[in-house]
């Protein structure tokens, strides 16, 4: 590849300001002594200038306002959902702590403190376990139903 060919292959990128420092210097040195390449560089510069001066189309004000409103609603929903999840996690944790703590109390009231050290399964323990499982299952099902309903309403909105 001759010097001219090499330089000309760089001219478009030069107009785009995309050359390395060394390439830029090489180009400038060549252009100082070569009128043909300098004219070619000027053509590229004009093209780049035309691209930079393209008019900026603007979105209609109503479109911007609608985008702003929709995005704000979505942002609110996203953060509301996060907050709800955090509260739900906290409540679940609290409920488990309460449940586990209530067992020894329950046994103390029904069978005496010494019963804590006795892991025998008797009907009271099983009743309590079934009661707890039923309550949790009912609570979980209610949460799922509410969540599905809420999601459906949001989709309709």
């Amino acid at each position: 590849m001759s010097d001219h060919q090499k330089i000309r292959s760089m001219l478009s990128l030069a107009a785009a300001g995309a050359l390395e420092q060394a390439e830029e210097e090489l180009l400038l040195n060549h252009l100082r002594g070569c009128e043909a390449c300098a004219a070619e560089a000027e053509t590229w510069r004009q093209l780049a200038s035309g691209l930079r001066r393209l008019p900026t189309p603007q979105p209609r004000a109503i479109v911007v306002e609608r985008a702003r409103a929709q995005a704000q609603i979505r942002l609110f929903e996203v953060f509301e959902r996060r907050w709800n999840q955090t509260v739900m996690m906290g409540l679940i944790f609290f409920a488990w702590v309460l449940t586990l703590m209530s067992w020894p109390v329950f046994r103390f009231v029904t069978g005496g403190l010494i019963g804590l050290l006795d892991p025998n399964f008797h009907h009271l323990w099983i009743t309590f376990a079934l009661f707890t499982a039923t309550v949790w299952a009912a609570g979980g099902a209610a949460a799922v139903v509410l969540s599905v309903k809420s999601r459906g309403e949001r989709r309709l909105a």
């Binding site: 479109v63 911007v64 609608r66 985008a67 702003r68 929709q70 942002l75 996060r82």
Partner: peptide
Amino acid sequence: QPAEAEDLFQVTWIRVAEKIQ
């Protein structure tokens, strides 16, 4: 197409709200 660009403009900002985290 301006109409398509406007739709995408709105969807982009909704996506920003969804993905900013």
